[in-house]
Simulated assay, not measured.
Amino acid sequence: MITAGIDCGAKNTKTVILKDGRIVGKGMVLTGFEQAAAIKESLQIALKEAGINEYDLKRIGGTGSGANAIVQANFRVNDIKAIVTAAHFFFPDSRTVVDVGAEESRAVKCDENGAVVDFAINEKCAAGAGAFIEAMGRALETPLEEMGNLAFSSDNPIPMNAQCAIFAESEVVGLIHAKVEKRDICRAILDAMASRIASMIRRIGANPDIVMLGGVACNPGFVTALKRDLNIDSVYVPELPEYGAAVGAAVAAAEAK
């Protein structure tokens, strides 16, 4: 069976093509102001990579904040179900799933069968989402892809006291003026965000085998900071974690009766 999963998010729209349990195509574009156009473009990119046509798709699953705009979908999946399904697709033993995207983050606790036991969502404050890292990167004049590696090389923890992205940016500017090394500031930024995500995980009661999805999972400095805060050895990150919800939608569509 061939299915597609489309995740229309606040920043990016992602599509995954699944054939007999394997990812054979993917596409990602900026969502922008025209959700319908972004959905269509990401789907076409994924179809082209998979070497198939849209009529070859048995089902299309839709998810994300813009799920209602996915007119191509004949099956819809809520965000929580999508990320849990994706986590179990990649790591069948996963019991806690963390998804950190551009605008919000989620932590979900599952039982051994993958059923949701509890969850927490941060959608009110940018300080707990990828937008926080982007804003701090602009203040540091440092590309996102460099921040993780810089933080990874730091062995000098510096606490950040601000709990708001706006005040945190002022704090970063102060650290820059104080001539603090850039790698140490990067670590402080990622440590601060990891602390917020770790608090959310503790709130639901973390199980072992934590899986992380979302674009922020591509940041090695953040993953290290999260492990350090939770005092654990491993956080499992699949290949292409930014496509997690789209994968979950495609898998759920394939499993639908």
Rank of each mutant, 00 (worst) to 15 (best):
A254S: 15
A10E: 08
K58F: 10
N74T: 09
Q44K: 09
S105A: 15
D93M: 14
S153R: 07
A4E: 01
A131D: 03
A135F: 10
G51V: 02
V108E: 07
L240K: 04
A73Q: 13
L190T: 03
E171K: 10
L190D: 08
G148R: 06
G32W: 05
N68E: 05
D7E: 06
A50R: 00
L230R: 01
A115K: 13
E49N: 03
A254M: 13
C186N: 12
D111S: 06
S234N: 06
A178D: 12
G137A: 11
C8W: 07
A256S: 11
A225M: 05
I201A: 08
A256M: 10
T224K: 08
G130V: 09
R228C: 01
M28L: 11
N156Q: 12
V29P: 09
N78D: 14
S42F: 05
A206C: 11
I80F: 09
E181W: 00
N161P: 04
N149L: 06
A249C: 10
A120Y: 11
V100R: 04
K227N: 03
A69S: 00
T3C: 09
C218G: 09
A139M: 14
A252S: 15
V16T: 02
L30N: 12
G214I: 07
M160G: 00
V235L: 13
L175M: 12
A120G: 00
E255V: 08
V84T: 15
A178Q: 06
V172I: 10
L140M: 11
G215S: 03
G148W: 07
V97E: 03
N122A: 14
S94M: 06
S154P: 08
F91L: 09
G101W: 15
S154H: 04
A10K: 04
G62R: 10
K81I: 15
L47K: 00
K48E: 04
V211C: 13
V117G: 01
Y55K: 01
